[in-house]
Write a protein that binds this DNA or RNA. Structure first.
Lengths: 257, 257
DNA sequence: CGGTACATTGAATAATATCAATCATTGTGG
DNA sequence: CCACAATGATTGATATTATTCAATGTACCG
């Protein structure tokens, strides 16, 4: 799940130095900046770096900003810092949170014409966005970049399928447990035989992600707390006391991650 | 959604002639055959063809066969003829049908260690399977193949996200309508201002795909029938009488596909 | 120190699942 | 070709689950 780190750090290095101080310093609003950072020499070839750099569009976003990316064309977005959610809209104002993304995560965001997708900042963010078609064209001439993009897509597909399984088959309790396990694996700080979480998203976001209402999420959280599996403090801090037991609760197949 | 047809037909051409008569003739059981068909000269370069051909493993499967593919390694599977379902297992015997696949469809099937996925034949099938790692390696040296594989993955991701939206947000009625619309687009024969469907999967399969029980699927079908949107004959024949109205029922955003 | 948004809890409602029975379709053997 | 068994689909009654509606409580921001 972390094979993409190389290309992530690659892109960060070639795009950040400039971008960071030019835009991130005061993100009063969404800022698009042409990054012109010098190429850092990394695994991939020099030509790729130069052209990647030319494509780079730095995006600073404040917490709560939606429509963080250009919606007129499909984008490949890298999270440099912060946290974002990818939301899809059904009719009647219903929204599904397709996923949460954190530092070093890649996101493929289809153009608005195809599907009603939107990237929203959960906290102040630093993102790097590429037009997907150009990114893909570029990846063709660089094996490393291409490989990383492929494995990212395969990983995204796996995650999405996993979510389908959860949404289609699991109970509210299992979904909340699954969500917590997933978050622990991605942004959890190791703690005893559990993990420490600082969730950047609201209960509504969680509910929209796992197909439940805020009330149901809340109730399941208290049940998990009463069962001694987690403890909470404040809105966002969750302490997973027994990760193995929580995985059991999540309805995971024994023997699988 | 059909950009993959080129590479599909490419692979079919380079692998079928032999395979078809050697194995498909009498699929008494699952048969793995090394295909040694001559290279058909198509868009992609000659070397790619030769190597693709070397990778090709022809698979004939009878209706109902599960574990159609080798589970020890991730596979890329092409449906030459027939229909298959990709299923994932949660604990307690619950299964989620991740998707249905038909002629010319590509499927990425992760190895069993990673996730408990399985490919099952819905009717007698002719499939071509490649070990994923080798397929990807090969795709790197052929731009066309790589492009097609990429767009397939993007398409698969889109479909999976669409399914997440349905499973997370939609009602039973909307899910069944969504399913029918999707099938109409994929295997429907045009008919008046609707489509004619011959569904190869059972109600259970449908239910496991859209996260409902067979009873609920059945009830929604009769409701749609009573509403004059579809008519049915036998178990598998469904006639969509008004596709536009059905899309409305499916909770699609107005203006989107 | 409020005020506002968010989260939790409770009671009532609606949706879907479950259990049970009947009906239809398909395939088989006489 | 038909009867019949077996599987799958439909329909009905009930149970369960999650949602909705409503109220209260709590954290976070100026």
């Amino acid at each position: 799940m972390t094979e993409i780190n190389d290309v992530a750090s690659l892109i960060i290095q070639i795009s950040l130095m400039h971008a960071k101080q030019s835009a991130a310093a005061s993100p009063t609003s969404i800022v698009f900046t042409g990054a012109t950072a010098p190429v850092a020499s990394l695994g991939a070839n020099e030509a790729t770096h130069l052209r990647l750099q030319a494509l780079t569009r730095y995006v600073g976003a404040r917490s709560g900003d939606s429509r963080v990316t250009d919606n007129s064309a499909s984008q490949v977005v890298l999270v440099v810092e912060g946290a974002v959610k990818l939301i899809a809209s059904a009719s009647a104002g219903r929204t599904q949170v397709m996923g949460f993304y954190f530092k070093d995560d890649f996101i493929y965001v289809p153009a608005r014409e195809t599907h009603a997708y939107n990237l929203c900042a959960l906290k102040d963010c630093e993102l790097v966005a590429f037009p997907a078609t150009e990114f893909i064209r570029l990846a063709q001439s660089d094996k490393t970049l291409n490989n990383n993009f492929l494995s990212h897509l395969l990983c995204a597909l796996s995650r999405c399928r996993e979510k389908s399984l959860a949404l289609g088959q699991k109970t509210a309790r299992e979904r909340v447990a699954t969500f917590l396990v997933s978050m622990a694996e991605r942004i959890g700080a190791p703690f005893s035989n559990g993990a420490l979480l600082d969730l950047p998203m609201s209960r509504r976001d969680i509910g929209d992600n796992i197909g439940l209402t805020i009330e149901t999420v809340s109730r399941q959280m208290t049940e998990l707390r009463n069962a001694g599996l987690v403890s909470t403090s404040g809105r966002s801090q969750v302490k997973i006391l027994d990760l193995a037991a929580l995985k059991q609760e999540a309805g995971h197949l024994p023997g699988l991650s």
